[in-house]
Nucleic acid binder design. Structure first.
Lengths: 136, 136
DNA sequence: GTAGGACTTCGAGTCAACTCGAGGTCAATG
DNA sequence: CATTGACCTCGAGTTGACTCGAAGTCCTAC
């Protein structure tokens, strides 16, 4: 019936509204994150919900989730699982990863600050000292 | 003359001593980070210095430098540039990157902690709220 | 002299999250 | 009715730091 619903959005419009590229949307579709409501003449047609879904994906990406993890979020729970439970499960794991990452960064920071005080006259000397464990 | 110097190390020995794989050493050679002292019958032969050079490369990698940056370190300065100057130049830039990275991590942490308090009954609702800017 | 093991080169494959290009289709407009 | 522009699919390319496999070579030991 509604073969021409004027609320329909083309991929280009969805892309513009959500701030992502059409090719990214097609890619997300290929990995199961979004799907058009229907098609007309081969073209994908979306509803407003797609824009929101993409906003959620962008948020999750910014929060550090991979597309794989985002798929878990969207489809890795029983249908009626509340959003908070889903988020909590994934975010808890991610926070642990972030802790590890922060720690790694601190270690690197320490190494960098130490090495800046190196007094070796050349790198070969420095490498030698390093192999022996202390750079002078 | 010394076509068979018994101080020579094969790629396998260097790899074992430095704790990196032979293929990684060949790869490092291909990007200009190490070179064998000489060859005998096609085989690469290294001196002790190669082990030290690899220790330095490993240290630099652990400190967050890319192989490209390590090449800068090794070959991007006038010959007589002291090690400390080289390290300081690269480490300063790297520390700035780490600051940015840390900050990004804090932002993600904040987003994750906020989203865990989400009370939406499903993700569609959550996505809608997100598009409008606040998740309840 | 032959078996084994370590080595050689070269090209392709890996991971993530896309992008790009070619070649073709579709709808609206002049 | 022809052009334009947005869309379609599919395959390949991107980045970094390697790894893997194939096919061949070399040295050592038995």
């Amino acid at each position: 019936m509604t073969n021409t619903n004027h609320d329909d959005l083309t991929i280009g419009e969805v892309a513009r509204r959500a701030g992502v590229s059409p090719s990214a949307i097609r890619y997300y579709e290929s990995v199961g994150l979004v799907a058009p409501e229907r098609r007309s003449g081969g073209r994908r047609l979306y509803g407003e919900a797609a824009v929101e879904r993409l906003a959620l994906i962008s948020f999750a990406k910014d929060a550090g989730f991979s597309l794989d993890e985002i798929r878990q979020l969207l489809a890795g729970f029983p249908e009626d699982t509340p959003a908070g439970v889903r988020w909590t499960e994934l975010a808890t794991a991610k926070l642990t990863e972030l802790d590890a990452e922060s720690q790694r960064i601190e270690v690197m920071r320490g190494a960098l600050q130490r090495i800046m005080r190196c007094r070796c006259s050349d790198l070969d000397q420095c490498a030698e000292a390093m192999a022996k464990s202390r750079c002078r």
